[in-house]
Nucleic acid binder design. Structure first.
Length: 152
DNA sequence: GCCAACGTTGGC
DNA sequence: GCCAACGTTGGC
């Protein structure tokens, strides 16, 4: 069992939107490292920190879990989609995704607060210049975050 | 809107 | 295979 942090822009899909769906196809990832995490490393049942990015208060907003094995992101084949990739074909898809099932909304554990927690200093998402939309979370970090979410 | 820090592209 | 130019992310 592994743990992940996945960024979503709440203007696009917030934790509330995600909770309203049976599961959410994580389409639109166009970064190879992030794709590889979904394609090669994620397992059904893995824990996910649902993170709101590019918004007034960025931070962890909920909990989710991996709900499918990897499969091709259909938006890469759709010429009208902003995620269209002319180099991808049905035979050799370039972009893979998984389904994500939101399980609960949490208090907003802000980026600002995360940065004050010593035990989380090495979290990939907090590293300087980190822009990856999907990053691994260690079991120890997950535990610390769960504890922080229960507070107050 | 700014801009640091990356990632990607394409000419050579 | 190098690397300059360009594009993107995302906090501020």
């Amino acid at each position: 069992m592994s743990y992940w942090l996945m960024k979503s822009e709440p203007d696009e899909i917030s934790i509330d939107d995600a909770l309203a769906m049976p599961s959410l196809p994580w389409f639109g990832v166009r970064n190879y490292q992030a794709r590889n995490f979904m394609r090669d490393n994620m397992k059904v049942g893995d824990g996910i920190l649902f993170y709101h990015s590019s918004c007034p208060e960025p931070g962890i907003a909920g909990i989710a879990e991996v709900a499918s094995t990897p499969y091709p992101d259909h938006t890469q084949f759709d010429a009208k989609s902003k995620y269209f990739d002319p180099k991808a074909t049905q035979e050799t898809p370039r972009w893979m995704m998984v389904d994500v099932k939101a399980t609960r909304k949490t208090r907003l554990l802000s980026l600002q607060e995360l940065r004050t927690v010593e035990a989380l200093a090495d979290m990939v998402v907090l590293k300087k210049g980190s822009r990856l939309s999907i990053t691994p979370v260690t079991a120890a970090e997950w535990k610390v975050v769960m504890k922080l979410l229960d507070k107050k």
